[in-house]
Design a protein around this nucleic acid. Structure first.
Lengths: 199, 199
DNA sequence: GTCTATAATTAGATAGAC
DNA sequence: GTCTATCTAATTATAGAC
């Protein structure tokens, strides 16, 4: 930390990361398209031009935000728990990991889940997201083949319903709230694997 | 049908309903905010001004579309199957009904699920949607109290995970596709009530 | 029911000073 | 790192003719 202060001359100011965080918050509140660089500047108590000092375009702000979410999800697939053991255990690990990324990088994943593919940046993000989905579908197929999962429902439908549950967490989970993230992951797995009916 | 032809003078043209359908399709493809009246006019092979003959504003187009979805969902709560019988049966009826509305009014419900509350029209729609959610939460609580559902998971979390599964159907269900809508409702109930694990 | 033309506003982005 | 001022293009919406 020999030269940690030189950039601290004059006004404090923002770095790229700090702007990204506030921008993603606004994108999630109003929607990416409905969030103009003008209101973004107002939120930052900054001029529009100052934002362009940190990002080359509105598109690039979105790009970096989506990377944050996708890198996290793809990372889960590379963890040891996702690579070794029975298929049902690997599937459970990935679902828990997805819930973990969702809750720890909530604004970024929320943004990712709302992307529709309007621009090249959005289409690339959708491609990476679909690849993640396919990896999980493979795990569902494996778990069914090893006899761990029921075989009367199409694996793609199963995967989609699983992600439906997991991804919907982004709509209502709040870090300050009563729900513990690990408990939430347990609940998702309990409902998904054993169902809601009392036995 | 004594006077069904007088409006058919001159060019065929659109009525409000036909424009609404195409508009909702565009809103879902690009997002409401990203869909300008200009591209809407292009889709309709119509001028922008012609659209304003049928709707007073872009906002009103959204309003009518959201009503279509909300009226359908609220209607499910009024059906006999939602009002009589055990709580678990009423809950199952409402979930099936929600899947039915989702699949039969797919574009309208899809649009509803993406509304964020930017305008007064959107906020009113969110209020009605939350009221529907609360009604289902009540059914979950009743079903738990009558001993039909497990009691170790918070009813609000249960409701949200249920809606997570149901609503996610809008992301991938296509009427032309292989999935039958009634079969799909069965699958949702099977996963939700009995779980995925093989017994 | 639709058109062309246009008003009024706002969008994303840049220039150049400090 | 931030500012004011400004550009160009696109936006929602309207006026008035056919």
């Amino acid at each position: 930390m020999s030269d940690s202060f030189p950039p601290k001359r004059g006004r404090p100011g923002y770095d790229q990361r700090a702007i990204l965080e506030i921008a993603v918050g606004a994108f999630n509140e109003f929607g990416y398209d409905a969030t103009s660089m003008g209101v973004l500047a107002t939120r930052l108590t900054l001029s529009k031009a100052a934002i362009y000092h940190h990002f080359s375009s509105k598109d690039e702000v979105l790009q970096l935000a989506l990377d944050e979410a996708l890198n996290g999800l793809e990372g889960v697939l590379l963890q040891p728990g996702a690579l070794t053991g029975s298929a049902i255990d690997r599937l459970a690990h990935v679902l828990r990991g997805a819930v973990h990324i969702l809750t720890t990088r909530l604004p970024y994943v929320t943004l990712l889940l709302r992307v529709r593919g309007n621009t090249e940046v959005e289409r690339l993000a959708l491609t990476r997201r679909r690849a993640f989905d396919r990896a999980v579908t493979s795990l569902v197929v494996e778990a069914r083949d090893e006899g761990s999962l029921r075989s009367d429902i199409d694996p793609r439908v199963v995967t989609r319903l699983l992600f439906g549950m997991v991804n919907s967490i982004a709509e209502w989970y709040r870090p300050e709230g009563p729900e513990d993230a690990a408990q939430l992951a347990d609940d998702v797995l309990a409902v998904a694997l054993d169902g809601l009916r009392r036995r």
